Amino acid sequence: MDVTTARERLKDMLAELDRSIRVLKGDPVAVREYSAADAGSDLTDTDSAQAMLTVATAQRRAVVEAIERIDEGVYGRCVDCGKPVPEGRLEARPDAARCVQCQAKRERRR
């Protein structure tokens, strides 16, 4: 994926994550927007909302870091081994920081 397309997708992801985070934090304007767009959903379960907020915040951090890698000219390279991240992986996850092998190693350590 070329960096221009990646940057656009990442910025779109960032905007969506920011909106979701505002909703999960209870921002009244964002909640109204969310309610209008997703009328069937309900965020009354505080534990679920907190878990989703944690995930969304981590995802946001990954997206910001991917944009920084674009700015630094290293986007598409694994942050661990330096090898290229496969094109298909970047298509599926524009925020991917690691090649498949390094990501698998990281997940096994957790």
Results as ranks from 00 to 15, higher is better:
M1S: 03
M1Q: 08
D2S: 03
D2I: 04
V3P: 04
T5V: 05
T5P: 01
T5L: 11
A6V: 06
A6S: 09
A6R: 09
R7I: 07
R7Q: 14
E8F: 13
K11M: 05
D12V: 09
L14Q: 05
L14K: 12
L14Y: 01
L14C: 11
L14S: 10
E16D: 10
L17P: 13
D18G: 14
R19A: 15
R19F: 15
R19Q: 13
S20V: 14
S20C: 05
I21Q: 08
I21Y: 11
I21P: 13
I21R: 13
R22P: 01
L24P: 10
L24W: 15
K25N: 14
G26L: 05
P28E: 05
V29Q: 12
V29N: 06
A30Y: 14
Y34C: 06
S35I: 01
A37F: 01
A37G: 12
D38L: 09
D38Y: 15
D38S: 02
A39P: 03
A39M: 05
G40F: 08
S41Y: 11
D42S: 04
D42T: 08
L43N: 10
T44D: 15
D45H: 12
T46R: 06
D47L: 00
D47V: 08
D47W: 07
A49T: 15
A49D: 11
Q50A: 14
M52E: 10
L53C: 06
L53D: 06
V55N: 06
T57Q: 04
T57I: 01
T57F: 10
R60A: 01
R60K: 07
R61F: 12
A62G: 11
A62K: 14
A62R: 15
V64G: 03
V64A: 04
V64M: 04
A66W: 02
A66K: 03
A66Y: 09
A66T: 03
I67P: 07
I67C: 06
R69C: 07
I70P: 14
I70Y: 14
D71L: 06
E72A: 15
E72T: 05
G73E: 09
V74L: 13
V74P: 15
Y75A: 03
Y75I: 13
G76D: 12
G76V: 06
G76F: 02
R77G: 04
R77N: 08
R77V: 05
C78Q: 02
V79Q: 08
V79T: 09
D80Q: 00
C81D: 02
C81A: 03
G82D: 08
G82E: 03
G82W: 04
K83W: 11
P84L: 11
P86L: 10
P86C: 06
G88S: 05
L90T: 12
L90G: 09
E91V: 11
A92S: 08
A92Q: 10
R93S: 13
P94V: 09
P94C: 04
P94R: 07
P94D: 02
D95I: 00
A97H: 13
V100S: 00
Q101G: 00
Q101M: 05
C102M: 02
C102T: 06
Q103M: 00
A104P: 11
A104F: 02
A104S: 11
K105I: 12
E107M: 03
E107T: 02
E107F: 05
E107A: 00
R108L: 03
R109Q: 00
R109N: 00
R110C: 00
R110M: 01
